[in-house]
Write a protein that binds this DNA or RNA. Structure first.
Lengths: 346, 346
DNA sequence: TTCGTCCTTGTAAACCCTTTCATTATACTG
DNA sequence: CAGTATAATGAAAGGGTTTACAAGGACGAA
């Protein structure tokens, strides 16, 4: 499209040097009022704005933050994206969005691109699993962190050097289980997840630990992270009971899984919460609209994201090595667990 | 974070001029094999990649596309974002995401920023309404289009100059209504929307037109675009019946509205599809998991997005003025409308 | 008047590349 | 082996800014 107007054009038309135009625009140098006005007139006449790629080159600052998330198909990550992007805008930054599917390791090539783009910083979030791909992703992140400001969300304390905001994911399972035991449940299964029982502060760990603490025997776990996964999980769970009595309550990895579980349970003729209780996680937008409305956990992810972005911006001035802040989930009670009074059957 | 390594460093260490390094990297000029190797060794040693901000300045190409969408809170737009971003990545572009809430007009200030960033192109999508804010947004878009490559999705043919990919939204209502009439319904209401009855190719228009074509009397419309809105819509609809018999079928503006409607209907003691049929729109991920699973319309938005991004990229070489391509929605039948046989009650 | 300040402005270097143009090295032809 | 065509390289300009530095002018003090 047509040529862009440059600072030279403005300078010529205003009858001053480019330096003066630059000073007028940036506003951080003294310019005679009369000159300023003359320049501003031309500037507004053409809607002139300095090319950010040129200023980026000079100032070594692109005013752009990278957001690296797994596929946004999971609305939880959409929420994060929304929150991060909005806060960035508020802070006068733009956001470059990258979706890297879990498992696709953060290859050198990708990291190099981030560097080449001279981003001012990067926010990273994603689920981590026990397997090798996660380890290598983590490694990539740590490497990246040495090259540019980076703050991680929910990456747990695996890379101690990483400035991290972490939701207490283990506490999610704990809260869910406590809620259920208060309602009288003792046979509680965790459905969904991505196989991260070895890692600290995961829902899997939280489940295992809390069950042990209460002297309850955990059910074998089944992996899954979306609605179809949730269906498969309950099928799988009931298939590998091996004579053991079925659970009276399910803790889902997230609301998506819960949604799938709901469907499969209905298919199996089990009523929620009448026959089996269910608690989700993430408090996603559809949770109140499930049938029955889902009891779930709110992770306060928007607040986390806001803080993360602010932190990232302030990185430029402050040192955040090993910064960490923790967020506690809160239980949102709706009706998928029923009420104490209904539970005479334990 | 530490200084970046530049092409000078590479050149010095490899004992060649920066021009040669540049040629080796870009690969589009002849360099003696031996020299190339020597340079490449240094390049890989340091993982050197030319700064994209510098190349952006030289080549006048940032390899960055802007994506302008309304709030991603609506998973339909998340889907678009995912699809657009993925296709961009495939085509070797990065995407800068902007969420501009509908109503927040596309101010000059925002447009100027897009220019200042020297984006290679912009994809725009959003709902359009009858009111002034939409008109002004459209105007902003048209203005932008004169300054940089731009393709619009579902913006209808309002700006004839705009290269557009458009889903036949009016056809959505039409398909839904036909499906319902085949099942015997005659009292059909449209719930949700944003007040766009005046505009061509909107669900609202489609509803009105098709009802008229069939000689059926339309119900007054109620606005809303998310799940809470859907609840309000059915409440509102039943409140302003004025003695008229209630509808036996509801066409929802989208699946979110349908979800809300489902909840409110249940609250009112109406069973879906037993007492009232419901069709959604967008075929969002949760549609199969609603109770009952939602009959809805698939807009093939991923395909649309893929094409849009390809188009945008090709804009650089081809002229797309007034390009337009239309996509037909397809009906996805699940169980929220029941089956013909159930309907003895008309 | 003359000197020293301060304010305003312009000149030019720098940022990190790509690319044109000129130059030198190599290969090819007769 | 001379002469020419071609391949490989380097020097330098250019892209659009910011900013350090220098210079000019106004002004008050001595």
């Amino acid at each position: 499209m047509g040529e862009h107007i440059t600072i030279f054009d403005i300078a010529r038309e205003a009858g001053v040097s480019i330096a003066t135009v630059s000073r007028v625009i940036s506003g951080n140098a003294s310019v005679r009022a009369q000159t300023r006005e003359r320049v501003m007139a031309v500037v507004t006449k053409y809607n002139f704005r300095p090319s950010m790629v040129a200023t980026g080159l000079m100032r070594k600052k692109t005013h752009t933050m990278g957001i690296i998330l797994p596929l946004l198909a999971n609305p939880f990550y959409s929420m994060m994206c929304v929150a991060l992007q909005q806060e960035a805008t508020r802070l006068n930054y733009s956001t470059l969005l990258f979706q890297i599917p879990r498992g696709a390791i953060l290859q050198q090539d990708f990291l190099d691109q981030l560097i080449a783009r001279r981003l001012d910083g990067v926010i990273f979030s994603g689920d981590v699993t026990d397997d090798a791909s996660s380890a290598s992703a983590l490694e990539g992140i740590c490497k990246l962190r040495r090259q540019m400001p980076l703050v991680a969300i929910n990456l747990r304390e695996i890379c101690p050097e990483l400035p991290c905001l972490v939701t207490e994911l283990a506490a999610c399972s704990q809260l869910a289980i406590r809620h259920l035991t208060k309602l009288g449940h003792m046979r509680i299964a965790l459905i969904g997840g991505m196989g991260a029982a070895q890692l600290p502060n995961t829902r899997e760990q939280g489940y295992l630990n809390e069950m042990e603490r209460l002297g309850l025997e955990p059910y074998p776990m089944t992996a899954g992270e979306d609605a179809p996964g949730g269906e498969a999980c309950v099928t799988g769970l009931f298939a590998q009971l091996n004579g053991r009595k079925p659970p009276t309550a399910l803790v889902a990895f997230n609301d998506l899984v819960a949604l799938g579980a709901l469907r499969q349970l209905k298919r199996m003729g089990l009523r929620v919460p009448g026959d089996i209780a269910l608690v989700g996680c993430d408090n996603q937008f559809f949770a109140p609209y499930a049938a029955p409305p889902l009891t779930t956990l709110d992770l306060h992810i928007e607040e986390t994201c806001r803080l993360a972005m602010n932190l990232l911006v302030s990185t430029q001035t402050a040192n955040l090595d090993a910064f960490a802040q923790h967020f506690e989930p809160t239980l949102i009670v709706r009706s998928s667990c029923g009420f104490m009074s209904e539970k005479g059957k334990i």
